Amino acid sequence: MSEEVDELGVRLKAYEGRAAAVACVGKDPVNAPMIRHWCEAMEDTHPAYRGPDAIAPPTMLQVWTMGGLSGHEGRTEAYDELLGLLDESGCTSVVATDCEQEYLRPLRPGDEVSFDAVIESVSDRKTTKLGAGYFVTTRMDVRAGGDLVGTHRFRILKYAPARRAPRARRPRPVVNRDNAGFWEGVAAHRLLIQRCTGCGTLRHPWLPGCNACGCLDWDTVEASGGGAVYSYVVMHHPPFPAFTESDHAADASGPYAVGLIELAEGVRMVSTVVGVPHDKVRIGLPVRAEFRRYEDEGAEEGALVLPVFRAVEGEG
């Protein structure tokens, strides 16, 4: 097995530096409607993205290169061949791990985007909790009017899933340096909202800077916990051992509602709606935050505390 994997690694390395796309052209020029949709989805109200001198948010760089279902002319066979080799070796699963972007100049409505892509690197064989496989990094150079405007690196892990007994363990949130304060508050049964010290704007989810004025300084306010369902979806999935307790469905393995909750303070938060059956949840339903503790036997992190929102009887 080890000899086979080493041989595969050598074959994969031969793809480094090969083109994945050549002289591709964006399906649409940079345009104001797409910028507006993006800003609304991100709740980004920065004035630089509006008006006659508007620029596109830098993080939209990849948007202008997407090929949709029909793809792009100019795509080479090298990348598909590389993934095919990995599939044949048993590395049939894939997960996107991270991306890096570098911005050299702003894009503006009317800019025509073109790009080339290259297979920049293939790692040695790596063993992860998901399974053993290879990290593949592609680099895309994006141009407008012949000028390089940005670079987008995208990294995936193609791996053979590890075979192990499933653990009845509730998935845990990803905690990083930007949101650690929120989860520390949740552990103490406090719902903390970021507040910009520059303009006073409240924001959630937590971000390193204010999306209204760009200020990097902030403090927190504690939410009252009251709110209402702004929108919701009903989740249907096969029974999963980690989700066995329920007080919002007759069958603990049955459907449940996940709501976008608008807090009394004005920000919105996603969490489970409890206290009523899923088919009784409605837009405008009054709710109040509560904190649930989940004990995971043998978990190194200890107990997990999560905020949920309970329907408030007699209101609304």
Rank of each mutant, 00 (worst) to 15 (best):
R310E: 01
V312H: 05
S271K: 02
E3G: 08
A165R: 15
Y294R: 10
L83H: 15
C91N: 05
F182Y: 13
A249W: 12
T128F: 09
E301N: 06
C199H: 04
G9S: 11
W218D: 00
R139P: 01
A96S: 14
G259M: 11
G227R: 03
L263E: 01
D98H: 14
R75L: 14
D53E: 15
D217Y: 01
T76A: 04
I261T: 09
T128L: 07
M269S: 06
E81Y: 05
H204C: 13
S93F: 08
A250T: 14
D6N: 09
I156H: 15
A144F: 00
M269A: 15
A32M: 06
A41F: 10
E73I: 05
R105S: 15
P109G: 09
E77I: 04
A252T: 14
A187M: 04
E4Q: 13
I283Y: 10
L12K: 04
L202V: 03
K280M: 12
E245K: 14
Y134H: 15
A212Q: 07
R105M: 11
D219S: 15
E245S: 15
T151K: 11
A250Y: 10
K13E: 00
Q194W: 09
V273H: 02
A19L: 13
L260C: 10
R195Y: 04
T244A: 15
V312A: 07
P57E: 14
R282Q: 14
Y134I: 11
A21K: 00
D87Q: 15
G198K: 06
M60F: 09
E301F: 07
V308P: 01
Y232V: 03
G84F: 15
V221H: 13
G71M: 05
R177D: 10
T59S: 12
G226V: 05
T220K: 03
C213V: 12
G133K: 01
D296P: 03
V229Y: 03
A32Y: 07
D28N: 09
T97S: 12
T201Y: 02
G181Q: 05
M140A: 07
E297L: 13
L8P: 10
E73T: 08
V229S: 02
G314V: 12
S2E: 14
A242S: 13
